[in-house]
Amino acid sequence: MLNIYDLEKKWLTYKIKSFLPVISIFIALLIIIIAIYLFVDLKKLNILDTTIPSTITKKQENNISNAVQESLKKETPVVQSKDISQEIVTPTRVEEAIQLPPRNETPSHEKNILEPSMAFMETMQSKPLRQTTNTQKTVPKNTVQVPKKQTATTITQKPQTQLTHETNSITIKKQNTYEDIEYVIKRFKKNNNPALSLFVAKKYYELGEYKQAYNYALITNEINNNIEASWIIFSKSLVKLNQKAKAIQTLQQYINHSDSNQAKLLLKEILSGKFK
């Protein structure tokens, strides 16, 4: 009447089945996490202009940003600060920075893109603290100690940010761009992340160094040939390097392969002579 062996088998399949939803939920969650991670990565690729500089300086933490900020704080004796920040701010680059003002005139708007991103980063550092103290002050003052502590921190924070704002001169911004590029190249050599090489390509393009922009866009494409922004920079650089025919050919191939709207638009502009 009772077939225990058969029943044991059935029980095992039942157990496995009942764990299936748990396992599938776990896998689904994992996929979602990976997808989000990839999505964030892609986003970085798309809005490199604004995000990368800030993220890079954030990640460096003790390296450049602090060094730069320190040099910024000690604004007037510029030469001294360069000596202090030994690692990155090498003498040659300082010279460049001094020479920079004349160069600035050509790609001035592109530097303007950088400026708000820096300001954004700085306000990011100071804002949340201010906000929390504000809300905590309006909300009942339960304990005397806690608000006191927090105002203390904001006070120390405030002068820093104000200082950096005041000293944000164009020369230093320019210096920042080159430092950023240097640093990003260093990092790129370590991890071969196409997001970094694309950033470098973009920055060189902005600075009018089209040969370098071409090189880094090419490198990016070799690592990942599906990054739209990289193909755009690559084609634009080709045009700038008087290789219009090659640019058109490249774009057409890329459009065939990807159906990219941005590439189509650029191709149209190149063909119509709007983009030179």
Binding site: L7, K10, Y14
Partner: peptide
């Protein structure tokens, strides 16, 4: 196992 045998849960 008894629940499977009596059909109270289906495996």
């Amino acid at each position: 196992m008894a629940a499977i045998h009596t059909g109270l849960i289906d495996a």
